[in-house]
Design a protein around this nucleic acid. Structure first.
Lengths: 101, 101
DNA sequence: TATTCATATCGAAAAAAATTGATATGAGGT
DNA sequence: ACCTCATATCAATTTTTTTCGATATGAATA
C-alpha cells in the first residue's frame, strides 16, 4: 500500500514550488491553454513547459491537445490520489506505538 | 483564503523528498528520537537534523525536547492543515469557467 | 566545573532543480 | 510544398537543495 516514496515524492513535487502553485491557482477557474498561462505568469515559454510537465507527471493536471494548442486542467482523479496519499502518509498506525531511548 | 504560495510550498516541500517520506513513515508507528531515526535511515546526523527542520517547519511534524534528546512525532493539526490546503489548491471554482484561445 | 553525549548550526562541496536561448516537432493555413 | 504558429525538447548556465565534516550549544553526569 505505502512506501513507494519515489511516486509520492513526484506527486508532492508538483505542490512545493510557488510558480506551480500559481499555475494551479489559474487552473481553478477552468481549463487554460499554455499561451494564456505564459501571459498570466510572466514566465518563459520553455520554463512553463517544464513546469507543466512536472504538474502532469504528478497526475494533478491533465493535458488535452487541440490542434496546435495544449490545454491544461485540474484532474479530479489525480487530486484525489494526492489527497489519499497525503492522508496515508500522515496518519499514525493504530497499533504499536514503539518508542525509544 | 488562498494564494499564500510561499507557505503552501513550505508545507508540501516536506513531502517531495524520498528521505523525508521515509522519516514520516517511521513516525507513523509513534514518536521517535533523532538518534533512532539516524540509525534507521543510514544518514548523517547533520543531514537528519536538516530534514527534521524542514518537516517541523511544514507543521506536519512536531518536536519535543526531553533533556538532551529531541523527540519527533506526526502532528494531527499540521496534517489537517495540509489536507485543507491540498483540497483548496486542487478544487476547481464553482463559478465561471473562463477558457481561452 | 570538567566531561560526555545528543542535536543544531555553519561553511564548503556535491547534487538536483529551474531558467534561458536555441532548435525541433508537428498542426494549420497559404 | 512552404510558412507560420504553439509547444516540446535540448544544452548550457544559474539557482536552490542536499550532504558532509567541523564546530557550537546545551543538558546530564562524574
Amino acid at each position: 500500500m505505502s512506501s513507494n516514496y519515489e511516486k509520492d515524492a513526484k506527486i508532492f513535487k508538483a505542490l512545493c514550488d510557488e510558480k506551480r502553485l500559481q499555475i494551479l491557482h489559474l487552473l481553478k477557474s477552468g481549463e487554460k491553454c499554455a499561451c494564456v498561462l505564459i501571459d498570466a505568469m510572466e514566465i518563459g515559454q520553455s520554463s512553463l513547459s517544464y513546469h507543466m510537465k512536472i504538474l502532469c507527471e504528478s497526475g494533478i493536471v491533465k493535458s488535452r491537445q487541440d490542434g496546435k494548442w495544449t490545454h491544461y486542467r485540474l484532474s479530479k482523479s489525480g487530486s484525489e490520489l494526492a489527497y489519499n496519499r497525503l492522508v496515508d502518509i500522515t496518519t499514525p498506525n493504530t497499533d504499536a506505538k514503539n518508542n525509544c531511548c
